[in-house]
Amino acid sequence: MGLLSKKDSKLILDPLADNNPITIQVLGICSALAITAQLKASIVMAVSVIVVLGVGNVVISLMRNIIPSKIRIIVQLVIVAALVIMVDQVLKAFAYELSKQLSVFIGLIITNCIIMGRFEAFALGNNPWRSFLDGIGNAAGYGLILVIVGFFRELLGSGTLLGFKVLGDPIEQTGLYSIGYENNGFMLLSPMALIVIGLIIWVQRARNKDLIEE
């Protein structure tokens, strides 16, 4: 972080752990959990949100002095929607299979509370460079949780990571499967995403007592 001052690097690093958007601020859970059954989808979703929030924060920050505060919500929505359409079109052009699989959840980035939350709380009151760092940091904190959840769900649920059979082949009985290991198909179903996040919150708050709620 040689390029960044201490204050700036705090903007990026804080949301990764102690001020994580998902586990602490409770933002942006909506569109996230459903796509974490596979690591690849989680990574694509994380990257999309990083792009949208990074660019969106800069745009809002550049416009912050000319947006009338009464209609700012709709201005924000239009900007996010435009960015998300771009991401969606890029995905459709270069990763069609994946964009089919993510189906409506790319579109739901628009109403992802992280985006509106950061626009309101940060970009409207700070200069573009700091807003950019804040956007990247928060989106990365969000992406981190997605990747962790995706990692465990794919590993335990189908025994693969990014499609590679890391635990051996269940049909040919190699690797772990030769000693009787079974995939837990339940991990692929949606309720387990909630429970995995619950456990992540548990671990995080047990390590850092300041975060415990009354």
């Binding site: 586990t23 409770v26 909630l194 429970i195 996040i197 619950g198 456990l199 919150i201 548990w202 671990v203 995080q204 708050r205 047990a206 975060l211 415990i212 709620e213 009354e214």
Partner: peptide
């Protein structure tokens, strides 16, 4: 204690 609030709601 670490599960109180958000954590237990998720589970």
């Amino acid at each position: 204690a670490p599960l109180r609030g958000l954590g237990i709601t998720f589970i």
